[in-house]
């Protein structure tokens, strides 16, 4: 419980109307880590990410990020602190161009020269986005939209990125490509909290993992240990 934890969540409770979706969870993410949350559909993974980024309110508990209390903070202020959220289903602005989407990612920044450097970086690493920068994001393929969603979050120059199901609905080839991009983002100094259906890949890429079942954390540990854990194998890795 030292002070240098980048993100710490303590005794978090979240309700959806009458439904007690998150029932008192604790977890932490340290700087430069990749941490993954695994769990079945409806376990509460997306709810946790939405609560951290301020899209839904917490009922009880505390969320701290780099010394700031996020618990009752509005979503747009959370983003300003350096925490970017890539939502499930990508949510690119489909009626806006690829370039405009990336500009929206940098909405809170004022350092114009650094913004264009970061834009160049994204276009160098993701040349398909560069080719299509004048096209509306809605015309991109699913994989390209996911790249754009991650690139857009990167444009905020975040300290930490929350990634929600980044490979959902993508072909195996693209899944590999997206995971390479996630690793690259992490190498650029961005701490990552990853929610992923593909538990095997998520455990392979991450340092640590938490296992979530119906709103409670039931296990946690180093990802390489969880990969060999019989219970995790049975429940999430297809035996």
């Amino acid at each position: 419980m030292s002070a240098e934890k980048m993100l710490s969540v303590k005794d978090l409770h979240v309700y959806y109307g009458q439904i007690h979706a998150i029932k008192g969870i604790d977890f932490e993410v340290e700087q430069n880590e990749i941490v993954t949350l695994i769990g079945a559909n409806g376990a509460g993974k997306t709810t946790i990410l939405h609560t951290i980024s301020g899209l839904i309110p917490a009922k009880e508990g505390e969320i701290k990020f780099c010394g700031n209390n996020l618990t009752a903070m509005a979503a747009h202020n959370v983003t300003k602190l350096g925490l970017s959220h890539v939502p499930e289903g990508r949510h690119v602005f489909s009626e806006m161009t690829v370039l405009e989407n990336l500009e929206m990612g940098a909405y809170t920044r004022k350092d114009r020269s650094k913004i264009s450097e970061d834009l160049d970086f994204i276009f160098t690493r993701l040349p398909r986005l560069k080719e299509r920068r004048k096209q509306n994001a809605g015309t991109l393929s699913g994989g390209e939209q996911q790249m754009l969603a991650i690139g857009r979050a990167y444009m905020a120059k975040p300290k930490m990125m929350l990634l929600d199901e980044p490979t959902m609905g993508l072909s195996p080839l693209l899944v590999g490509e997206i995971f390479e991009i996630i690793k690259l983002v992490n190498q650029m100094g961005v701490t990552i909290l990853l929610v992923e259906q593909n538990a095997k890949l998520a455990l392979e890429i991450s340092n640590r993992a938490y296992v979530l079942e119906t709103g409670r954390m039931v296990m946690n540990g180093l990802s390489k240990d969880l990969l060999n854990d019989e219970r995790v194998k049975d429940a999430y890795l297809g035996g």
């Binding site: 980024s53 899209l55 509005a74 747009h76 939502p87 949510h91 602005f93 009626e95 990612g105 905020a156």
Partner: peptide, 10 residues
Amino acid sequence: EDASAAKLMG
């Protein structure tokens, strides 16, 4: 187009 995503942009 997408108010939640806009909030996430700050």
